[in-house]
Design a protein around this nucleic acid. Structure first.
Lengths: 122, 122
DNA sequence: ACATAATATGTCAATTTTGATATAATAATT
DNA sequence: AATTATTATATCAAAATTGACATATTATGT
């Protein structure tokens, strides 16, 4: 968990810092972060599928290109609300959104490598 | 749609006002509202299942009883973030959350009575 | 009926989120 | 290689959300 997953999270600006800090994140908090990242990825995927630029998406939702970029980067300054609103606006169905969220579940439960590394690291 | 569904939404504080205003709500906005209401209901359901008071839930998430009440009432001042965080905190799984969201989809597609009434009302 | 627990509603200062803007970094096109 | 389109990153004032608090209403038990 430490290395791989933490780096991924930190890259997106979630600055976790120490291992203690990381461990202090409740599983609920982690699950929410994972969910938001899953929605981020879904957004980028859907946008590319529809061959839209970030600017085009921004127009559809009365926002700015930079905010769309932040959404896709999974930055903490982006709320779940905004992610979902944007997904719905470009035509994603609630079902697709639900699927993305379910996937985020799997990624929590599944990353056995991460957990192994964690429990082996002390 | 006017009467039944609008009343439900307005009761929760979404004050829609005129029919025009209502119709101006994009389907994305409506879908998001429906989603949030579905999460509201899920929260209440899960809380009752676990026989927790609103105060007990508030403690778990460092919030207040009144805010939990607002969550369950589906008030606009409650973000999707908070709803999901709370659901996760009391032990709901991402899968359950996803299911609730999928249900909200059905309610949009299904309410044939509402749509009929709407198109017949002018 | 009375007390008590639980839920609802209103308000508000503090925090968080947001769109906008500027600008840098990359990719695509000619 | 030079132009142009696209995406990334930083900053910030305005808007939305939040926890806390007060208090009203409603349920539950005795």
């Amino acid at each position: 968990m430490d290395s791989a997953k933490r780096q991924r999270l930190e890259a997106a600006g979630w600055k976790i810092g120490t291992v203690e800090e990381f461990l202090e994140l409740s599983s609920a908090e982690l699950a929410l972060i994972e969910m938001k990242l899953a929605l981020s990825r879904k957004l980028k995927e859907q946008r590319l599928n529809r061959k839209l630029s970030q600017t085009a998406v921004a127009r559809q939702i009365n926002s700015s290109q930079s905010r769309v970029a932040k959404m896709e980067a999974g930055e903490p300054s982006v709320s779940t609300d905004l992610l979902i609103r944007t997904l719905l606006s470009i035509g994603a169905t609630p079902r697709e959104i639900a699927e993305a969220i379910s996937v985020s579940h799997a990624s929590i439960q599944n990353s056995a490598d991460d957990n192994l590394q964690l429990s082996a690291s002390h």
